[in-house]
Design a binder for these strands. Structure first.
Lengths: 203, 203
DNA sequence: AACTGTAGTAATCGACTGATAACATGTCAA
DNA sequence: TTGACATGTTATCAGTCGATTACTACAGTT
């Protein structure tokens, strides 16, 4: 009768474990910001020990860089998937694709957070590069004019703000939340509302 | 011949000292985010000792709450000052007022940062309240329609992003920065460029 | 079956940070 | 003048966090 050890995580190939940790890290970084997140929290969320996270990624900063790079990748993927169809409705389809990213934990907040860290030498480089990739995609692949691209991104940033503020709970006294949401999500209010956490909730 | 002591800050009424610290704190919080700044950095920037900062404000969190509350106040002030004049150009004047806030260190980044902290119980409340005040000002005092208010705020968030990313330096290889800036600041590119720090600069 | 590289953990360290306590000095009313 | 309050500091602590080291165990190859 061999005693189950089981303190250690089930064995897995390093590449798979990395992907698993990246996914967990996206959620945690998204919920608590880069500086506000500990490598231990990421490790727990991924079901491994804290030193192992550090060993797989070198430093917390490098881990975060991989996280945001991956998030920009994912974002462009879903945008590209929304390209086929009536050309005049590309913007709408891509907007919908953006809001649907809300279900992928941390994806949007992590990108939003990265845009506030342009002053960090390493992270800033990756964040600018990610933003640049989005911009060029909109111009080159989606065929947006500069003005259309500006408008699209501005709306995305506004959505990030609504999400970050947790403006989707019941704060009738604080904000005319319904009006804000109606104005910001013309026809996706209900969906967005159900996808978002309220204030204080762990996301 | 009395020996100058001078290790201590020149005496000042507590109310004035608070205001001085709040100003310094806005700059530091704006440059390094809430979690990323230490009370000691704020104290140094204000020229006082670290324990005195926490004694005057109780906790770091309470200090930050006063900072963002003050920032939303200030923002509404400059918006209100831009109201008088041709009604059809109110939006332009307020947009200009917003970009001119860039010279007041930390004012814009701090507000941007606050919108990412809606999940924090205390800070989130104040951030939502600040956002709400802006929204109501736009609707009630500036006479914006919901759609106009949405558009105005979205543009502001985009500006915050540009600023946060430090997209104003020379990153010709990373981004068609000029095109982005042209699209985002139709007629204020040069002014904005001179007001913003480059990546790595301390702001 | 033994060897070797890979996957993973426990223990721990040094640096940092927010907060507290105790103390010092300046100001002002009576 | 004196005493009482307000302004401000030094010293220090207890907790936290990222990173390092040293170790264990599993898996595949020959």
């Amino acid at each position: 009768m061999t005693v189950e050890s089981v303190p250690t995580a089930p064995r897995m190939k390093a590449a798979d474990r990395r992907e698993l940790i990246l996914e967990a890290a996206t959620a945690v970084f998204g919920a608590k910001t880069y500086v506000g997140t500990t490598t231990d929290e990421v490790a727990r969320a991924a079901g491994v020990s804290q030193p192992y996270v550090v060993r797989l990624f070198g430093t917390k900063e490098k881990l975060f860089i991989e996280v945001i790079d991956r998030a920009y990748d994912r974002m462009i993927d879903v945008f590209r998937a929304a390209l086929p169809g009536a050309p005049e409705a590309v913007g709408d389809r891509m907007g919908t694709a953006y809001t649907e990213l809300l279900v992928e934990r941390g994806m949007l907040p992590v990108v939003a957070n990265s845009t506030a860290l342009g002053g960090e030498p390493q992270i800033g480089r990756v964040a600018r590069a990610g933003f640049s990739r989005i911009w060029r995609f909109l111009r080159d692949e989606a065929g947006f004019t500069p003005e259309q691209a500006r408008e699209f991104i501005a709306t995305g940033m506004l959505i990030n703000t609504i999400v970050g503020l947790r403006l989707t709970g019941d704060y009738g006294d604080e904000v005319s939340a319904t009006e804000v949401l109606d104005a910001c999500f013309p026809d996706a209010v209900e969906k967005v509302r159900t996808l978002l956490p309220a204030a204080g909730e762990p996301w």
